[in-house]
Nucleic acid binder design. Structure first.
Lengths: 223, 223
DNA sequence: GTCTATAATGGGATAGAC
DNA sequence: GTCTATCCCATTATAGAC
């Protein structure tokens, strides 16, 4: 193996580790399996990381800190807000079906993080990000559709995030595509009913009954 | 330690294992930790179980096969169906708050089961049971409230089960009680809107379709 | 049947040559 | 810096006394 910078080596190991965790589960992702996957020696591993724990930490931050796979679509002109939710969740389901092991790895890593007070915060921040992302998308969708949410957007966002986890768990267990789609449709329809026509024909473009002030009716997550 | 039948010993070990998994996580639930918890020797363990794997299997079947903690209330006279859903989910949230580690242990064991084709079926059956239970409760709630579901009850049931998992994950990460309650309220309200007055006014007074056969009119899912 | 003591395994970490 | 070979330890599993 050619010389690599320590940073590159760490990066390569984290990627390899993710594949191994996806394939075999976190419990069986031994350092030996990981270095084999990465095509390097055990000693090289310990040159890049002080311990396996340190690698797992890096892995948690990597996947759980990766820019969130934006679930909701940013804009969809002329679409009902329910449709936006539906499409976003369907898109996520496609992603899940395409790489179930990766999503299961995510769950395992999150659970692992919950077991340690320090790591718990990493997971917590990630969920905050999820919620912010979902909220921004919902706000954008409503603005684009010319409706307002009759419930706090934050609550709807949290429902959406929770549903995503729930769909993931259920689908990983049952592998029932149709059931997942039915649940998605149902949720999208019911959420769609939490929107009402935005009666005042846009005096202030950025009005929404949420908590935080929205600067613009622009589409989607800014961060 | 007094003499115990092998069955009793297995039972005691499974219970001890559950406590250890809840406290430390599945990965760190070593046989040593488990026998210490159970107050017996390592050799006694291997007298009852051939291997640690065998114990974990028994544990999975024990928790995952335990009679489901019925989430929904059976009857609630005069209540709106949305209220039934709300109350059921709140009750579940109380349970979760009361023993978070136990629920996390459930998740870990389910995930563990997913990693092995044989064990996967155990989890699958459990989710089937969850869905049946939720469906029965929803059907009963509608009958008792004199309404009918405008969506297939099976779909609503699946949404509910997914939501339970989702709430569990989110709450375990964020520990945000108010957020969880808001999500529950929102879901309950929207699900409540999937019920319409049951026009034919109660031909059979003593009807409560707990499990399979709903004498009520159109509840939806035919299959 | 139940224990103590011990073997066997596997995996994390390191020494030291190059 | 990177490797091979090795150490060391935790854990599972078993032997054998009682």
């Amino acid at each position: 193996m050619p010389r690599m910078s320590a940073a590159d080596r760490r990066e390569a190991l984290v990627r390899a580790a993710l594949r191994v965790v996806a394939r075999r589960g976190l419990a069986r992702a031994t350092t030996r399996a990981i270095v084999a996957e990465a095509g390097m020696s055990l000693a090289s591993f310990h040159y890049a990381f002080a311990s396996r724990d340190e690698l797992v930490d890096a892995l948690v931050e990597h996947v759980v800190g990766a820019e969130g796979t934006a679930v909701l679509v940013d804009e969809l002109p002329g679409a009902d807000v329910g449709d936006v939710v539906r499409l976003g969740l369907r898109r996520y389901l496609e992603h899940l079906r395409g790489d179930p092991d990766a999503e299961q790895a995510m769950l395992e890593l999150t659970q692992h993080a919950l077991r340690d007070p320090e790591r718990h915060d990493v997971a917590r921040r990630q969920y905050e990000r999820y919620h912010e992302l979902a909220e921004a998308s919902l706000t954008a969708a409503a603005a684009s559709a010319g409706v307002r949410w009759t419930r706090p957007v934050r609550d709807i966002a949290r429902l959406l995030v929770a549903m995503t986890d729930g769909i993931t768990m259920t689908w990983l267990v049952t592998r029932d595509d149709e059931a997942a789609e039915a649940a998605i449709d149902l949720l999208a329809d019911t959420i769609g009913r939490a929107a009402a026509p935005d009666d005042p024909p846009a005096p202030e473009p950025g009005d929404r009954p949420t908590t935080a002030p929205a600067p613009a009716p622009e589409t989607g997550a800014t961060e």
